[in-house]
């Protein structure tokens, strides 16, 4: 198992995430794992009891998890949002923009490459789930 990268100050949740179906059936779970075909909006009524949402990427080319992440952040979820699975260096920066703040890749990443990936973009063109100011806002500040 590769090291989990975490960009949060709080303590990690210490119990495993359950499936969305299990989560919706039981009232005490605080960690859930979303698969690509799950509807992230099913979690929205329960955000206050969630501390960890894992979004699984079985294959890096399946981009549904990016939308799941943004939908959760747009709804105000501020717990840990962790990308797990086929998470590669070249997807990290976009994942971060979509609201992920933790990464649990199947394969260990080279930390120099990770740092370079997060430092890559001097600016951004769009509003997303991070705090970055888009170029259009800077042009008309």
């Amino acid at each position: 198992m590769a090291e989990t990268l975490r960009y949060r100050d709080d303590e990690p949740v210490d119990h495993p995430a359950v499936t969305v179906d299990s989560f919706l059936d039981q009232s005490n779970a605080s960690a859930v794992r979303i698969e690509p075909g799950d509807d992230a909006r099913a979690l929205l009524p329960h955000l206050e009891r969630l501390a960890l949402v894992e979004v699984n990427f079985p294959a890096f080319g399946d981009g549904r998890g990016y939308s799941s992440a943004r939908i959760l952040r747009e709804a105000g979820y501020d717990g840990e949002l962790r990308a797990v699975g086929d998470v590669l260096v070249d997807q990290l920066a976009y994942m971060r923009r979509c609201g992920f703040d933790a990464f649990e890749p199947d394969q260990q990443l080279d930390m120099d490459d990770v740092d370079a990936a997060f430092a890559r973009w001097p600016e951004v063109y769009q509003t997303a789930a991070d705090a970055r100011t888009p170029i259009w806002a800077k042009r008309h500040a």
Partner: peptide, 13 residues
């Protein structure tokens, strides 16, 4: 063009 360039959500459609 600017909106769609490096779009973080829509690069793995």
């Amino acid at each position: 063009r600017q909106w769609s360039s490096f779009h973080p959500e829509f690069s793995y459609l």
